[in-house]
Design a protein around this nucleic acid. Structure first.
Length: 422
DNA sequence: TCTGGGGTCCTAGGACCC
DNA sequence: TCTGGGGTCCTAGGACCC
């Protein structure tokens, strides 16, 4: 059996740990730039807010209901996520961390010594006690069914945070009641297609013949069908190295001139290179893309991207930034109000197996690698961007995302640790 | 005025081969 | 007038996830 452990309204729950007065109140966490709602509590859902709503359009509801708003604080959420995962790993041998707020736990063998539901309830209690984060658990023979279970556990108090689907009867009952649109792996397009064939519940889908599904749907949907029938076939094992690394941002204010855009793109390139070295990889391709503001119909629209291929895989910030600037020059058009830009590194390989090039134009690679190591160490110790390329621009001149409701770095900065007055 | 960011996998169709 | 058959590889774009 597989258990899915899912943190409830994770970002909001983290904020609530440090603002306990908010229990039972509507809370939202926003995307970068204080743009859209990315996480919200059930109380916020109940008054008509949704994930993805642009917050400026929701001003009325927010003010009328006294909704508490937080800007995104990923460092804080990541730190808390790590704590939750550590507790899971201390109680379960095989844990697969799937996302910042979800982990799959493989419970093979545990059933010989424990009642699985009780065991997982113990884990839930431990997480609550140590971190104050509420979690829901679904237990089932496949990951997709475990996800279904966890949603039931979240929705109905009677399950006491853990819902196990361990019999044919329970499986059918669960799939009959579950919303087809909420099934893991079924998105908008697949839902529409299923509806077209008259399928409106997960049970109707699961009861179709395999040949029927195979002849009409792509492989991922066939896998979902199998999983709904209790046959595990979705692999979520963590990839050692990412195959692509991206840094992109929407700008708070639109950018028109090349130099400012170049500084941003250099900044993104440096961030990508840093992530790349963090996983000990090298990349051979650098893609840059730029977009105008699609919501401004009164302005000329433009979006473009291009890829520069490097002669040798590298993780050198200087090389990657140079390539990114070259790519940007190729696609930049004058007279456009740019709203968003990004850098993507591709063709990623292990840094320790790079094929050397006898005609390599950079003759001092070992020294350059040492330089990068030095920069990374300084930045790790003294804070991000303490040392950076001049091309990335003066930090004071560089555009900063809007972040008006950010809580402190309570778990990663001694200066911002909570003060408690008694 | 203000509308997120970062990934993976799959597939159809094009380009090419004999 | 009529214009084959069988492959491989690559890539852009789609669909999905959080």
């Amino acid at each position: 059996m597989i258990a899915l452990v899912d943190c409830n309204s994770f970002f909001c729950s983290v904020e609530k740990v440090f603002h306990p007065g908010l229990n039972g109140k509507p809370v939202c966490v926003l995307s970068c730039n204080d743009g859209c709602i990315v996480a919200l509590t059930p109380e916020a859902k109940a008054i008509g807010l949704h994930r993805g709503d642009p917050i400026f359009k929701m001003k009325d509801i927010v003010e009328r209901n006294n909704v508490t708003i937080f800007s995104t604080n990923m460092y804080l959420y990541a730190a808390m996520s790590k704590r939750v995962i550590n507790i899971l790993r201390s109680d379960i041998h095989h844990v697969e961390n799937y996302s910042i707020d979800e982990s799959f736990c493989y419970l093979d063998g545990y059933e010989r010594h424990y009642n699985l539901t009780d065991y997982m309830r113990g884990v839930v209690e431990k997480i609550r006690l140590y971190t104050d984060i509420p979690v829901s658990v679904g237990i089932a023979p496949s990951k997709t069914l475990a996800k279904v279970g966890s949603k039931f556990a979240k929705k109905f108090k009677g399950y006491r945070s853990v819902c196990m689907i361990d019999s044919e009867e329970k499986r059918r009952k669960a799939l009959e009641l579950f919303d087809l649109a909420d099934v893991w792996g079924i998105g908008r397009q697949t839902l529409a297609k299923l509806n077209y064939y008259g399928i409106t519940t997960p049970l109707q889908f699961a009861d179709k013949k395999e040949s029927w599904v195979k002849s009409r749907f792509p492989l991922p949907t066939v896998r979902t069908w199998k999983e709904l029938n209790g046959i595990p076939c979705i692999d979520t094992s963590e990839k050692v190295q990412k195959q692509s690394i991206c840094t992109s941002r929407s700008f708070g204010e639109m950018i028109r001139d090349f130099d400012t855009l170049k500084a941003s793109v250099s900044d993104f390139a440096a961030s990508c290179a840093n992530k790349l070295r963090g996983q000990r990889s090298a990349a051979s391709s650098v893609t840059v893309f730029i977009l105008s503001n699609r919501f401004r119909e009164d302005l000329p629209q433009y979006c473009n991207g291009t890829t520069v291929t490097l002669e040798m895989p590298t993780s050198d910030t200087i090389e990657i930034t140079t390539a990114a600037t070259k790519a940007l020059k190729a696609i930049y058009r004058d007279g456009i109000h740019y709203k968003k830009a990004g850098v993507i590194l591709g063709e990623i390989t292990d840094a320790s197996y790079i094929q050397q090039d006898i005609f390599d134009r950079i003759q001092n690679r070992p020294e350059r690698n040492l330089l990068m190591e030095g920069i990374d160490r300084l930045n790790h110790h003294y804070g991000l961007k303490t040392v950076r390329l001049a091309a990335e621009g003066e930090p004071s001149l560089l555009w900063h995302p809007k972040s008006e409701h950010k809580s402190g770095n309570y778990l990663s900065d001694l200066n911002e640790i909570l003060t408690i007055r008694i």
